[in-house]
Nucleic acid binder design. Structure first.
Lengths: 127, 127
DNA sequence: TTTGTTATTGCAACAAGGTTGCGTTATATT
DNA sequence: AATATAACGCAACCTTGTTGCAATAACAAA
C-alpha cells in the first residue's frame, strides 16, 4: 500500500537518504534512530518506501539488508538494477551508476542480478 | 587450522559436494543431515573445508550461506571469483564457469566481487 | 475546530540462522 | 595400549528481522 501519511518517522528516515547516495543498512538506522523510533516502525517504513520505489534494498555480504535511494524506478518497474560498491576499509556502501555486461547464459533465462563489488573507495584508496 | 582428522562428518559432507557442482546452503545440509550430526558440527566442518579451500561460501539473496566446491583455489589464494546462478523456480544454485567483465571504477580499488544472477535454469526454462 | 476513521506506532513475544562454551568422544600418533 | 588433543554434541545464547495487537496520531469531513 505504500506510504499514505507523512509521519515523523517517514520524514526522519527520508532525510537520512536525502543527504547522499550512500546505502545504509537497516541495522545502522536502528542503531542511530532506535532511541526515537521503535525498530518495528523503522522496518515498516523502509518496507513501504521500497514498495513506493523511493528506496530499493539488497543484501550486503555481511548478511544485512541495505537500503538506498532509487534513481529511476517506478512502482511498476522497480528492480534492483545497479551494482553496489562496499569499501572494506570504511565500510561505506554506495550505488554505482555504471551498467553491467552480464555473461551470456544459453538455455537459461536471466531475470535479476545482484552485483556487489568490494575494495577501497575513493577516500580510502589514497591512505 | 582446517581439517586434520578424517571423521564421519567430514566424509559425509564431502560426499554431498562430490556428486555435482551445485551449491548447497548450510540450512539445507542441516535439514538433510541434522539427524545424524549436530548443526554445530556441520557448521564447523563447513568452516574448516572453506579454510582448506575445498569449499567456498557466498550469501544467497535469501540471506542464507551457500557452499560449493572450489575448482582452482589454493589455501593461499582462495577467492570467491566466479558468479552463481539461482533458479527462481526450483531454487537450485549453481556455479558459473564464465568470466565476468567488471565495470571500470576510476579512483577505486577492486578486490572482490560477488555476482548472483537469478532467473530460470535449464530445467525450468522449458516448462 | 471538533470528530471519526484508520494508518501508523510501540511493545512484547517470537522466529530462524548462526555462534559460543564446555564437557565428552574418538582419531591418530607414540 | 596409552595418550594428547581435534572434533563432536548439547544447551544456552546472539542477532537480525517478523508478528499480533492495543494505543496513538494523521488527515479528511462535518
Amino acid at each position: 500500500m505504500g506510504i499514505v501519511r507523512k509521519t515523523k518517522a517517514v520524514e526522519v528516515l527520508l532525510n537520512e537518504f536525502k543527504m547522499n547516495s550512500v546505502a545504509i543498512s537497516a541495522k545502522l538506522l536502528i542503531d542511530k534512530l532506535g532511541g526515537r523510533f521503535n525498530k518495528t516502525t523503522i522496518y515498516g517504513v523502509l518496507d513501504k518506501l521500497e514498495e513506493d520505489a523511493v528506496l530499493h534494498s539488497f543484501l550486503g555480504k555481511d548478511g544485512l539488508k541495505w537500503y538506498a535511494k532509487c534513481n529511476n524506478c517506478s512502482t511498476a518497474e522497480h528492480k534492483d538494477v545497479h551494482p553496489h560498491f562496499q569499501c572494506l576499509s570504511c565500510g561505506k556502501v554506495d550505488c554505482l551508476t555504471v551498467s553491467v555486461d552480464l555473461p551470456k547464459l544459453p538455455n537459461r533465462k536471466i531475470e535479476f542480478f545482484q552485483l556487489l563489488i568490494q575494495g577501497k573507495c575513493e577516500d580510502c584508496v589514497v591512505l
